[in-house]
Design a protein around this nucleic acid. Structure first.
Lengths: 129, 129
DNA sequence: TTGCGTGCAAAGGTTTTGCATGGCA
DNA sequence: TGCCATGCAAAACCTTTGCACGCAA
């Protein structure tokens, strides 16, 4: 399974080199000519393989992100609701909270699925003007 | 605007008394007979008024929750991906992290929109068996 | 050759909208 | 009475699926 086909290569190429986060809409536009059914099937397969992660966007559509090899080490991901950027929060405070949530609240967090929403520093500055 | 109509009263009644979280599907079933278009319009209006909060569920549909008067004081909400329960995490650790995120990462969190996903204590125990 | 992948079109589920009518204030 | 709310049906939207054909291994 998982033949090395053209569409597979094209989809993966979009996510190369960095913390790319793409909506289904962006993917279909960049891969103009590829039928959506193929895209959905390929994206789903890549998620199954663990190469991509899939989230629900606020508008109900999907958003995909490349899974970091070996798993992302970040405690949390901070997504700006204005510019859409995603910050990876890799600091001790965050990791402590993860431990605390597990130890004191009995809750094991799925941090591949967890995104904190808010407004990033840049957009806060813009809004303050 | 916002007349005190039958459907408005019925929708609000569902959210009375506690931390209720309802999917659109549950709402339409409990209010059998009310057309979905009315429900969607009323739910949207109640969100605009600030009485309800609206989130995307994993299946792409909406989930509604009563907005606490004066805003929910919890640092975070922990949602179990198995049983669907939502825990309000009101502890100093969480609040410290909120402050830290603001102070050190320049990120102002919108905690009405932020939900941490994982597995609650009860479901973890069940899974361990 | 075998079996997954592709393309097209049709179906599925949830949410939104148009329009005429009904009901609150 | 004026204006918002309601009901019904149709549309919009994103995603999934069926089926015959194509292509990688």
């Amino acid at each position: 399974m998982n033949y090395n086909t053209k569409s597979r290569r094209e989809v993966l190429a979009l996510f190369e080199g960095g913390d790319v986060t793409l909506t289904t809409d962006e993917i279909t536009k960049r891969l103009d000519g590829v039928p959506v059914s193929t895209l959905y099937r390929r994206l789903a397969a890549l998620c199954d393989e663990g190469l991509l992660l899939r989230f629900r966007a606020d508008d109900g559509s999907y958003v995909y992100r490349a899974a970091h090899k070996g798993g992302c080490d970040c405690a949390f991901h901070l997504k700006c609701r204005e510019c859409g950027c995603v910050e990876h929060m890799e600091c001790e405070h965050g990791k402590e909270l993860l431990d605390h949530i597990g130890a004191h609240h009995g809750f094991s967090l799925d941090n591949a699925k967890t995104v904190l929403y808010g407004r990033c520093a840049a957009c806060s500055r813009k809004a303050a003007k």
